[in-house]
Design a protein around this nucleic acid. Structure first.
Lengths: 224, 224
DNA sequence: GCTAATTGATAGTAATACTATTATATTTGC
DNA sequence: GCAAATATAATAGTATTACTATCAATTAGC
């Protein structure tokens, strides 16, 4: 992927971490290696002890950055959605036609991510795999309402709201813009998951992508 | 809900359990109380020890029915989808028009479940809440491919395939029947979740239901 | 070069996720 | 109605998880 801006730093809600991992070498190492380790062994069996061993660092040092592994996952997801939003904005820049803008936005959120070499400690392609496999777990907890109140999911909701605005602009009479937008984003991740694991209940494969399915869906749904 | 048949027993894949919980009093108690306890404290903090205390039984006795709590959840979900399939078949019976059949099928899978008094040890309304909150966790594990091969998700896939068949019958030229069907089922659960926890990114509320959204969506998508 | 902050090492606790063993009920088969 | 078979309960034990606390060693900032 080509670099868009060389010195951006993606900001994540301060309440998610104890100490900002972007401010130190160890912090960045935690981000970088946790992505590889979660992808490798899955979030359920991932522990700070295993991560500590992998980065040659102490378990207790990791606790100084994140309260627990759930918060670390929330951080990674929040970072991801922020990065997606940033790409959406760039891809839509200078495009006036709202349908074309929507198509570009949907393409960004439904497509496989490529690595952005300008951010060396985050492998976006693997992070994308983690989002497909694990993002849903950040929402499905008993703490969802508290965490939502704290603003943990603001960026995710902001990405959805950008799509909502485009849908409204294209068809102000369409009755379900929010549900359509949120179901596209969640559904795109789900179709990617099915493509890899439950192939019989999706049309997506090497030739047909979730992007194709959703571009077709919005075309049909919002045609006048 | 009215009783459809008085002596049905919903069959669940034998590989999911160690001993069939439907064959004993304790087994049924495990099913009954696990539904209440998972709803109450959430699947993540649910343990067999806590369940044992709740039913006045020993932790080790529960292990004789289920290898671990994940398998118990898979069992409950499998039971749920089987029950949904059974209701779908009944609601579509003697209806010939494929669009009307599809509407009824979608209504069954997207609607809140009511309690079926004929099955006393399963509270379907609460089980429905568990499915909304926890079903996704049965799929998102590192063991998904093995468990899929073992047939753990056959009933879920069968429910989706019934919808796929109806879509194909209505519009044989529609290119993405499987993706549409799987995204409706997953999406309906997701919209229910958003309605309760992330209200700003859904149109669903007390007046508008996920059923309304999805009936509208298939109407638009499959109109000729 | 001194001080403050960060990290590492070690230890410890309570809970989780089991397994194994043995004792005690309960059921069933005849 | 009794013995045998089966199911359940009680207890104990292990390895791992998910932390917290303390203190020593290292590094960074000025």
């Amino acid at each position: 992927m080509q670099t868009l801006l060389s010195n951006i730093k993606i900001k994540v809600n301060e309440k998610i971490y104890v100490k900002d991992p972007e401010t130190s070498v160890l912090g960045k190492k935690i981000l970088q290696e946790s992505i590889f380790l979660i992808d490798e062994i899955g979030f359920d069996t991932f522990t700070f002890k295993k991560l500590g061993e992998k980065i040659g660092s102490n378990e207790s040092s990791i606790y100084r950055y994140f309260e627990n592994k759930h918060k670390l996952l929330v951080y990674l997801c929040s970072w991801y959605w922020s990065w997606i939003e940033y790409q959406m904005v760039f891809k839509m820049m200078n495009i006036d036609d709202p349908m074309e803008r929507l198509k570009r936005a949907i393409t960004v959120v439904t497509q496989k991510s490529e690595e952005d070499k300008s951010i060396p400690h985050i492998n976006e392609a693997i992070l994308n795999k983690i989002i497909i496999a694990e993002f849903t777990k950040t929402l499905h907890t008993k703490e969802i309402d508290d965490e939502n109140r704290e603003g943990f999911f603001l960026i995710y909701k902001s990405v959805i709201n950008r799509i909502v605005q485009l849908i409204i602009e294209i068809d102000p009479n369409y009755q379900y813009p929010k549900s359509l937008a949120s179901s596209i984003i969640e559904g795109a991740l789900h179709q990617c998951f099915l493509k890899d694991h439950l192939k019989t209940i999706t049309d997506c494969n090497e030739k047909i992508s979730p992007t194709d399915f959703y571009l077709n869906l919005i075309h049909i749904t919002l045609r006048k």
